[in-house]
């Protein structure tokens, strides 16, 4: 008995440990319960039938840039600015058709426009069957690379009811060579940077230079490459694959990171899973395993 006494006085120190929670089916994009996330309950099949227009096409004119809140509720946890891609599919006989991709939500729009001296003024509505649908009003000078406008939500009770945007024309092209190495993301606090108010030091999740170390679209990662990496760095390495394919992030942390720090990033799709290369698929699988392991075991009592 005396013997145990000694052991347990050491163990007393750690009596507050959390037991480990087995996490088996953690999904990639755990959408946080935040204002701007689209309804997670919408089944993908239904979404596909509702929005057949939104499959990106090489002929679409795409404009990308920040989608900034103008009228919003300060007391709610809103996304002040998201990167948006606005694509114009057709401008014919006074009818404008296109779609936008922002914050994990891809929505078609359709409306009318007037043209005077090459300047197009358009007003186009989203279908209206989504909580976050609204009306775009934008101006574009034919031949110009800039498009400006505003968006008003149909639902006046949303956290953000009006946004504005000044976008630059850009062609989307998947490129495995796009790197994170010039983005300067090392040292960023993945948790607190997206909260503009007070930081919470306990929740800090600082990215290290490991987050930019591997291009998981080009190099087949081995166990030894990733086993000593922190969870946040693994997550960024994996999500950079998604970003190269133009995935629009629902997950706020990833969205904030790629929106704000990665210039080449352009959200064009809410489902890129069929576009991954075999190498990317393997890397995603490996990285995910280590992420899930880290999430469940790194800071808990257990393995």
């Amino acid at each position: 008995m005396k013997f145990q006494l000694l052991y347990f006085s050491i163990l007393l120190l750690v009596a507050a440990c959390n037991p480990s929670q087995p996490t088996q089916n953690q999904t990639t994009e755990l959408a946080e319960p935040v204002e701007e996330a689209p309804e997670p309950t919408t089944p993908p099949a239904a979404a596909a039938t509702v929005e057949p227009v939104v499959l990106p096409s090489g002929d679409d004119k795409m404009f990308v840039g920040p989608f900034v809140a103008v009228d919003y509720d300060e007391n709610r946890n809103i996304s002040y600015s998201n990167k948006i891609t606005l694509a114009i599919r057709s401008l014919e006989n006074g009818i404008v058709k296109g779609y936008s991709v922002v914050a994990g939500n891809s929505r078609p729009f359709e409306g009318t426009y007037t043209e005077k001296d090459g300047t197009i003024d358009a007003t186009a509505s989203e279908p209206g069957d989504d909580k976050y649908d609204g009306v775009f009003t934008f101006r574009w000078q034919r031949g110009s690379s800039t498009l400006t406008g505003t968006w008003k939500a149909n639902n006046t009770k949303l956290g953000v009811t009006k946004r504005k945007f000044t976008l630059e024309q850009r062609v989307f092209r998947y490129d495995a060579n796009l790197e994170l190495s010039d983005s300067g993301i090392a040292g960023i606090d993945l948790y607190n940077t997206l909260r503009e108010s007070e930081g919470d030091a306990d929740m800090a999740e600082i990215l290290t230079e490991d987050a930019e170390k591997f291009n998981a679209s080009k190099v087949l990662l081995r166990k030894a490459d990733v086993e000593n990496m922190h969870k946040g760095d693994l997550e960024v390495t994996r999500n950079a694959i998604y970003a190269r394919h133009g995935y629009s992030f629902k997950n706020r942390r990833m969205r904030y990171l790629f929106d704000s720090y990665v210039d080449w990033y352009m959200p064009v799709s809410t489902d890129v899973s069929r576009q991954f290369t075999e190498l990317e698929r393997k890397n995603i699988e490996l990285l995910k395993r280590y992420e899930q392991h880290a999430a469940s075991y790194y800071d808990s009592f257990g393995r």
């Binding site: 050491i10 163990l11 120190l13 750690v14 440990c17 800071d299 009592f301 393995r303």
Partner: peptide, 13 residues
């Protein structure tokens, strides 16, 4: 079995 996991917890914290 216990101390290994406890040390891990302490070191990580």
């Amino acid at each position: 079995a216990i101390t290994l996991r406890a040390w891990k917890f302490v070191l990580v914290a």
